[in-house]
Write a protein that binds this DNA or RNA. Structure first.
Lengths: 254, 254
DNA sequence: CAAGCGCGTTGACGCAGATCAAAGCGCGCG
DNA sequence: CGCGCGCTTTGATCTGCGTCAACGCGCTTG
C-alpha cells in the first residue's frame, strides 16, 4: 500500500522534535491542552518531519502506528476505489490532528499539497500520555465532534447539492476559514487561496475537473467572483454566493 | 424549527430513568464505561422516553440542551436544505449515542423510524459527570472516531459510487451490522431488514426513490438478492454483491 | 528558444440518473 | 368486503454532468 512513498520522510536534521514550547501551531492544536510546564513530556514523544508536495505520509490500509499533527502547510485526505476513483474527504491545515481511529490500520491516505511540517507521535506512547492529561483527551473529543459536524455538512453537499452549489459552498467555506488554518498572510477577507489543483477540488466535491472549471468560469461571468490567477479567487458578491451555497437561490441567474 | 414536534415526547410513566443497571442497551453503549456500582449516578441524570415512528426528537438549529442514547428502535439523522432537499447522514440504532457537538445548537435533526426508546441526559449534568468518569470520555472519543471513519466511507459513496454500487454497499453494510444494533431477532445472516422507507434509503444514498426501486429490481433480476417483502431483502450472492459495493466489479453483469 | 509536459479551459456529445406520469399493492377503515 | 390512501414499482422522457477531444498557457529542460 505504501508504493508512493519511495523515499523516507524527511526528518528535520537540527531539531528532531523537542520544542513544543515554541511551536507556532500549538495555540490552535490539541497540544494547547497541555500545560506549558509539561510540554517536555509531549516533546519527548514527538518527532518533527517535513513532507514535500505530492508526497504521501499516511497510506490507507497501512498499520496505524502514528498520530500526526500538522504544524505548517496543507494535506489532502482521501480514499480510493480499486479502479482509481478518488474521494478527498478533507484538507488538513496547521493545527489539524490526524490519525484518530480505533482500528489497527489507517482508513484513509494523506498527501501533502504544499510543503508541510508535521509532528509525528507514536500511537502507543501518546496513548499512555493521554492517561496523564485528560484535558488533552477532552480536546480530542471536541476536535472529533467538530469534524463529525463538518463531515455531515459535506454529506449534504455530496448527496444533494448541484455543481454550482458545491463550488459556492467550497469557496464560502474557504473564505471563512480561520487565518491560522491557511498558513499564509491574510490578504483581503474575500481573497480565497487555493493551494490544491482543480483535480483535488473536483475529487473533494464529487465532480470532474471540467465541471469545476466550467462552473467557476460561469460564476466569474455572473460577476460573483474574480479569478486573477489559477490559485486565487476573489469573492465579489459574498451574500449572493452564500445564498447559492446554502440552496436559497436555485432561481436567479443560472 | 420544532414545528414537527406537535406533542411533547412521551415520558415513560412507571420508570422515568432510574435503572441503568438493567438497561439492555448498556453493554453496547458508552454507558458500559461506567462501573456497575456507579450506575446510580448515571441514572440520576437520565430520563427514559418513548418516541413514536415519524416523530422527531432533535431539530437542527434548536439549542442543544440534551444528549441522547438510543436503547431500542431506529432513528434517522438528517440535514435539510431550505427547499426541502434532504440528506440522511445516518441511522441510529440501540447503543447509538447522539448529540456530540461543541456548538450550542444541534447541527442535524433526528426522527424515529420505528418506535423508539431513548435515554435523555442533560448536557450540563452529563458534562460534570464526565469529569468524574474519564473512562466514559475515552469511550466517547472511540465512538466519535468510529463515526468519523464511517462518515468518510459515506463521502466516498456519495461522491464517487454509482447507484448500483451505493445500493450494494448499503445492503452489505446492513448485513454486517451487529445484531444488537438492529433491535430484532437475527434470522439468517443474509436476511437484511429495512425498517426505513424507500424515500429514506434514497435520501441516505443521495438518489431518488425511483432509482432505488429500479436498482433493487435489477439486482433481484440478476439473482444477487431476493425481495420477499418491501422491508426484507435476502442476499443470495454475498461475495458478488460485495464486489459491486467495493467497486471491484464495474464490468460483469450490468 | 524550441520542445515537452502538466495543468487548466473550452467545446461537442452521450448517458446515468432525475423528473414526470401512471399503475399496482398492501392495509386500515367504514 | 369495497374503498381510499400511502408507498412502491414501472415506464417514458429529459437533463446536468460526465466523457472525449482539442487547445492554450506557463514552466522546465536541454
Amino acid at each position: 500500500m505504501s508504493v508512493t512513498r519511495a523515499r523516507p520522510l524527511l526528518v528535520d536534521p537540527h531539531r528532531s522534535g523537542n520544542d513544543c514550547a515554541h511551536c507556532g501551531a500549538r495555540a490552535h492544536s490539541v497540544c494547547n491542552a497541555i500545560d506549558a510546564r509539561d510540554l517536555d513530556r509531549l516533546a519527548a514523544v514527538a518527532v518533527q518531519l517535513s513532507v514535500e508536495p505530492g508526497r504521501s505520509f499516511i497510506d490507507e490500509g497501512d498499520p496505524a502506528e502514528s498520530f500526526f499533527n500538522v504544524t505548517a502547510g496543507t494535506a489532502k485526505l482521501f480514499k480510493l476505489l480499486p479502479d482509481g476513483r478518488r474521494q478527498i474527504t478533507g484538507f488538513a491545515g496547521p493545527g489539524h490532528f490526524l490519525g484518530l481511529a480505533v482500528s489497527a490500520s489507517y482508513s484513509f491516505s494523506a498527501e501533502a499539497v504544499e510543503l508541510m511540517r508535521i509532528c509525528r507521535f507514536s500511537r502507543t506512547k501518546l496513548r499512555t500520555l493521554l492517561d496523564d492529561f485528560p484535558a488533552m483527551e477532552k480536546r480530542l473529543l471536541e476536535v472529533a465532534s467538530n469534524e463529525l459536524v463538518a463531515a455531515q455538512e459535506q454529506m449534504l453537499l455530496l448527496g444533494r447539492k448541484t455543481a454550482r452549489e458545491r463550488l459556492a459552498s467550497f469557496l464560502i467555506a474557504r473564505s471563512e476559514m480561520p487565518v491560522h488554518c491557511l498558513g499564509h498572510k491574510p490578504g483581503s477577507a474575500e481573497t480565497v487561496l487555493l493551494p490544491m489543483t482543480r483535480s483535488d477540488i473536483a475529487d473533494y466535491l464529487g465532480l470532474t475537473i471540467e465541471t469545476v472549471s466550467r462552473t467557476l468560469t460561469k460564476l466569474k461571468g455572473e460577476g460573483l467572483i474574480e479569478i486573477p490567477s489559477t490559485e486565487t479567487i476573489i469573492i465579489r458578491r459574498h451574500v449572493a454566493l452564500d445564498g447559492i451555497a446554502t440552496g436559497v437561490d436555485s432561481g436567479g441567474t443560472r
